[in-house]
Design a protein around this nucleic acid. Structure first.
Lengths: 217, 217
DNA sequence: GATTATCCTGACCATATGGTCAAGATCAGA
DNA sequence: TCTGATCTTGACCATATGGTCAGGATAATC
């Protein structure tokens, strides 16, 4: 990597500023959308002059692209939890927990992702067509093997995945609506626990996981 | 109403143009977001000069406001199906069907709604706080009565509603992702039927509706 | 057919925004 | 301390956009 040539302190400055800018950008893109976000506002949130953003990221689009790619990485990491498990209760339960936790800790990222996909994925369409398609097809096979092993009902794996994605991400993307319906308060720790338990219970029971497994939630 | 004073033909012109503009606006707002949408593009889609839009809708914000309010009305109408039913299987089944149908026929509207809520509902916050809160609280009571009558498990009604909203709207808001995962094809009639059946089955079974009711889906 | 109310629209304006640049500041290495 | 590389930033520019307006077209009324 050419950045290894760069001296240490300069390297650190670059790293920190890029992170500061990316964090600010994620926040602003989430709140205003791509079109509504302005470089000036991102700069203000980052606490840097606007021209400095353009030093690190040549264009608004390049900055946005980086934000979206980072979110995709977080998404993929959560998906890993899916794997190291033996059956549907464990695997899907852990996956739902992981995604709910992301929705709680990282709502801005989820909103940017949702916005990007809603607008026909102008910058990450290639990722959808390759990484996402592959990942999804792999999990579908895993789910089908569970069905064949009699560990769960013969549900369509695709729609099961969509339901999990939709529901977990809803707690991030629609957090404002959820707060409004919660007496204008953010969900408390206990309410988040309850949300996770409720979601897991309905989905897992809905696909035929036996009651003995459900009681572990 | 003062528009009754307006002569017939003029009245019709107004009605038709407003509808043309609102349809174009919904489409463009859905595809580009509020910030990314331009009055010029909406005008082009509507096939009218830009100045004409400003004759009917004074500002971009006024036009957007009207679009969002219309969507809220559609949403409320679908919610009516919830009522004329006796138990959870029938009521929730019909409600899910209705919302899935809206997602299929009216995806642009759903996207505008999602975008509005994601951006902290700048124009319909008052509706969220009044109409939506009231509607939700009413349905929660209904669901609780079903629980008490032993017609379903003791699930938290709130999270059940969120799951239904999330899942059904996902098929509109993320239709591009779903298409990408469906070999770049829109869902066929059969696939929509399958989607509806899958969603209803998982959710209804998940809340403890007996198998005898499920087989009717 | 003359008058009034409504509708239509090309041309125009003020402003906001993404992006540029040149000059200066800071740092690393010799 | 000197030199080159990297980083910083205020000032600036071209363009796009929301919105205005005056004058013309069309429809309704008498």
């Amino acid at each position: 990597m050419s950045s290894n040539i760069r001296p240490l302190k300069k390297q650190k400055i670059r790293q920190e500023n890029e992170k500061t800018i990316l964090d600010a950008a994620e926040k602003v893109f989430a709140e205003a959308g791509y079109g509504g976000a302005t470089m000036q506002l991102i700069a203000d949130v980052a606490g840097l002059p606007k021209a400095n953003l353009h030093y690190y990221f040549p264009t608004k689009e390049a900055l946005y692209r980086q934000v979206v790619q980072n979110i995709f990485d977080v998404w993929l990491q959560a998906a890993a939890v899916f794997d190291n498990a033996t059956g549907p209760a464990e695997a899907l339960g852990a996956y739902i927990d992981a995604k709910m936790e992301i929705s709680r800790r990282h709502p801005a990222g989820s909103k940017v992702w949702a916005s990007e996909v809603m607008h026909r994925a102008p910058v990450i369409q290639d990722y959808l067509e390759t990484t996402l398609v592959d990942w999804t097809n792999d999990r579908i096979k895993v789910i089908q093997s569970w069905v064949e092993a009699g560990l769960m009902d013969a549900v369509d794996p695709r729609h099961l995945l969509y339901m999990i994605w939709a529901t977990t991400q809803h707690y991030a993307d629609f957090n404002h609506q959820i707060e409004t319906l919660n007496d204008a308060q953010p969900l408390s720790d206990a309410q988040w626990q309850n949300a996770k338990r409720s979601v897991k219970r309905i989905i897992l029971k809905g696909i035929g996981v036996p009651e003995s497994e459900l009681s572990k939630l």
